[in-house]
Nucleic acid binder design. Structure first.
Lengths: 229, 229
DNA sequence: ACCTGAACACCGTTCAAGT
DNA sequence: ACCTGAACACCGTTCAAGT
């Protein structure tokens, strides 16, 4: 059945496309830390050095990953039916971008380590900017707005210190009480937070609430600034 | 003159303190990329392995650097005479923290890579929280507020993609005009921005303006939320 | 108590060579 | 055109040993 030039079981040749997909897959499932050239090659059933035929170096690999992420975001974002007011239109867009970001835990770290903008991301920002303009923003105010949103424009905030597991258990609660005199406010706050909602405080949901709170604070503020001047 | 136990030219023994100071110095001047255990040891006139007597591993080294940074911030922040309203009190505090942060370009990256909170940083947040409480915030609203501020509470925002040098020169301006039809808004904005203020657009100053704009947007928004409910 | 030498298990990357 | 083997210059870190 096989034609004469078929050499081996999996003979699909490598391509930049395939390398990037595999890199994203690996980073998604095993974490950014295990994304090494050697491991990635292994995943593709190839020697590490073969990758360099399709990608100049690791930086270009990471750039490429960001670019397909951006493309993925743009595809999803284009399917939104655009709200008439700029604020909810922008809110919808950003929350959609966030949904894609959540699928790729490596994205925040990699995005912030980039030194080159990728086209797909530029296009995403161009569209956001268009929304601002349609809403009546001057270029100057839109520029401030983009800076104020920062990474939130792409749907994420890089948390300082993720506390990990030890938030609600008995051990850490006991420790908290010990520190109560030196850190009255922090302890007071944590006691109330952890006491209140043990059901829906499941990491993602919680972060989502905080993200939307911060986003709305900024969007509302921008809207007010817009109508003030 | 020398006492009998003086062994050699520089005989000051290593200490965790000295290791951390040297690490901060090295990262400040040469960048985080050149802060390796081997290079740090060399800076201290010692073999790389000697460091491990004072510091468990590199993570602990970075933790330590963050802790002295936090201490430095707290010292500066305590000298502020506190404004009567919470908003300017918090604004002053955060902008003071920012002044310290600006001296340590590695700080944002390292802070966001930490997994353990350092005491000095906890104390900084405790104080911020105290300001919120004094201003009349519930624990719940203060909690939202801290999340909304994010890294801005410590005086920095991690920029996505720093464009580097190629912002205002003739080459990039020519490129911009070529892309004008695909990226009308982005090009329009950049043309206006780079056209407007070539004098005071000196990197730091510019970032400072954007930082304060975003900060005030958030603080004003929080103030409004506070007085609404 | 404090520091060192030699070694290990990793990195990304170059380069000449194979098919 | 596409892939590989061997090697280089780096990492962080362990461990037994020196003073």
């Amino acid at each position: 059945m096989a034609t004469q030039t078929e050499p081996s079981p999996q003979r699909v040749p490598l391509s930049k496309e395939r390398v990037l997909r595999a890199a994203i897959d690996l980073a998604d499932t095993e974490g950014l830390g295990t994304l090494t050239m050697r491991r990635l090659a292994q995943e593709l059933g190839v020697e590490a050095m073969s990758l360099y035929y399709h990608v100049a170096n690791k930086e270009e690999l990471l750039d490429g990953m960001v670019d397909v992420l951006g493309t993925e975001i743009n595809e999803r974002v284009e399917q939104i039916e655009e709200a008439s007011d700029w604020k909810t239109a922008m809110r919808d867009r950003i929350l959609t971008a966030r949904k894609v970001m959540m699928l790729h835990p490596w994205a925040p770290t990699v995005l912030e380590s980039r030194t080159n903008m990728q086209l797909s991301i530029i296009l995403y920002f161009e569209a956001l900017l268009g929304l601002f303009r349609k809403g009546g923003f001057s270029y100057d105010l839109a520029h401030h707005a983009m800076h104020a949103l920062g990474s939130r424009a792409l749907g994420f905030t890089q948390e300082l210190f993720d506390p990990g597991e030890d938030s609600g258990d008995d051990d850490s609660m006991a420790m908290l009480e010990q520190m109560a005199d030196q850190l009255p406010n922090l302890v007071g706050m944590l006691m109330e937070i952890t006491h209140d909602g043990p059901e829906d405080t499941l990491g993602w949901c919680d972060d989502q609430t905080e993200f939307e709170f911060g986003l709305d604070l900024l969007l509302d503020g921008l809207d007010r600034t817009l109508h003030k001047t």
